[in-house]
Nucleic acid binder design. Structure first.
Lengths: 325, 325
DNA sequence: ATGAAAGCGCTAACAC
DNA sequence: GTGTTAGCGCTTTCAT
């Protein structure tokens, strides 16, 4: 209580009504002069909210960093959050234990008012707890466990139209290299692939691998050993690209001459690869924005009718899929 | 005060002495059963610290996202912070106003106990304020304004040895494409280049551009128009790579046949570019760890003698620098 | 060893 | 319009 009172100062800070114009300006000046800034912890304590939102995403170490998916998503979220005066509390998780400790430290303790989390990050127990508590959160991607508000790209549509494109280019023996079967995104991409192949009466060869270079490399060699050899390989995730290229180099297969290669998830460098890579481009930035908008709605106590926001993908045709003929 | 008292519970939570073994276990059990978790805001309020550290980095939109530098650094920081039970409050800044609002919302209001910030992000005024308040922070890179604890890569050494390598390969007309002259990192890289060129009695051609595709493209065309044309181009930042490749394609110059290209800052895809790009690899992960270790020391009230941690770079020789001869 | 009480910095409800 | 009061959920003396 430097110049005047205290509850009044509070009103000025929250520009609430019931304070004289003259007093207000005087207090404002004092605040300036004293370089006073209200303490966020104290505010959180009484307001019962923190002004922070949490983001839990996989740690790059666990997925090679060659995909720009998570960094772009994060950037998009950070930007939109800042526009709403919310801070982003970031947790990267390498393993399930990491997810768990992030969960503990961020969510228990109420350090955040809302959460955005990669759908494949959380296990059923944690999701159930969030659901049970009615905590506002949105998933990026589909969870295999719960039905909840989430945003996603059109995995099925994207793979399906890319597959159709390959077929139209004359490929009939196409293999898909996909991640672990348990992931919904992987399932959908495989489905899109199978559907498109089936629509043309073609056999869909699907190979699942882990998101590790070794596993992917092994898988690719295996699938390329099957005769008659496929003429096209569809890598169902950006993290598999370098493994695919490495393998073809090792086997001295030319892309796209001996083997066409297409990828789900585009990257700025694909245009400059050798050859330029044809890819399914995901609207990552928009995905982040959609996630945050959904979260804001949830945090405001609204319950958007639409539980699922599926954003369309786009085919970016370059040279690696071969030329028509 | 469910089972017993209250101040006692507090002691149990912080496993402080002065509480009976039997009581302790009983309270612990209660905590389990009630799924009780202490409120972080309340704790912060009394402890006068938040358990969060802030990270302010440039927004990817402002640097093209083709470099993996900041994402990797961030991941490295997030991981090490988690190991110390600290949360990371992230702000990405596109413009100076963003930096300012991040500053306001994070630092004022005491939402964090320490800060890691890109040296080129903050202006003098903000830096001075932090310094004045004695707030624990460390810079990634050198600030043009203040002398403070910071971590950095050996810009001079990296460019110098890469330049020497080019010279050893037989190049004598080499140009450096560098970012804005005002940045200390840019200055150092230019210096390293000049030093190595001078050591061999060669003329150093240096061109500065903004970190934008257009600006870079214009600059490259300009430098390639000078006769006799350079035989090698040294892009002093990863964000300039795609612009450089684009320009050479447009001018129908073969790399490395007509023009060698090397880059400061490596990227997983360089190995697969056309041709594979020779680069100066930065120890980004270690940089993040060093920054955080320094910050921890500062937060613990210690003042490490060494104000500057400079990490060595490494030459990754691929095909774009041409072959000896 | 345990309980009572004060207070961290703020907001909200009420009296003046 | 403005000041007073209580209390957010915790930690920390200080009695007991």
């Amino acid at each position: 209580m430097a110049g005047v009172s205290q509850g009044t100062v509070s009103k000025v800070l929250n520009d609430a009504p019931g304070v004289g114009a003259e007093t207000r300006t005087r207090i404002l000046k004092l605040i300036q002069d004293l370089d006073y800034h209200p303490n966020a912890s104290a505010r959180s304590l009484v307001a019962r909210k923190t002004g922070n939102i949490g983001v839990i995403i996989p740690h790059p170490g666990s997925y090679s960093m060659s995909s720009a998916y998570w960094p772009i998503l994060l950037a998009s979220i950070a930007e939109r959050a800042a526009a709403r005066n919310l801070n982003v509390l970031l947790s990267t998780a390498r393993s399930e234990e990491d997810v768990d400790s992030a969960y503990q430290s961020i969510l228990r303790g109420r350090r955040i008012d809302g959460l955005i989390v990669g759908a494949e990050q959380f296990r059923q127990k944690q999701l159930a707890e969030l659901l049970f508590k009615g905590f506002p959160f949105v998933l990026v991607g589909k969870s295999p466990f719960v039905s909840h508000w989430h945003v996603d790209v059109d995995n099925r549509g994207g793979t399906s139209s890319m597959t159709t494109h390959l077929i139209q280019r004359g490929h009939c023996r196409i293999a898909m290299l996909a991640g672990p079967e348990a992931y919904p995104s992987v399932k959908e991409r495989v489905e899109g692939f199978r559907t498109a192949m089936a629509a043309h009466g073609l056999e869909a060869r699907v190979y699942h691998c882990e998101y590790h270079t070794d596993s992917a490399a092994r898988c690719i060699k295996q699938l390329l050993a099957v005769e008659p050899r496929v003429t096209a390989l569809f890598a169902a995730a950006g993290d598999l690209t370098t493994a695919a290229i490495s393998a073809t180099r090792e086997l001295r297969l030319a892309i796209p001459g001996d083997l066409a290669l297409v990828v789900f998830d585009d990257h700025p460098y694909y245009e400059y690869l050798c050859p330029p890579i044809t890819a399914v481009s995901q609207p990552i930035h928009e995905l982040g924005e959609a996630a945050l908008d959904l979260l804001f709605a949830l945090m405001d106590g609204r319950s958007p009718e639409q539980r699922e926001y599926v954003l369309p993908t786009r085919l970016v045709i370059r040279a690696s899929c071969g030329f028509p003929g």
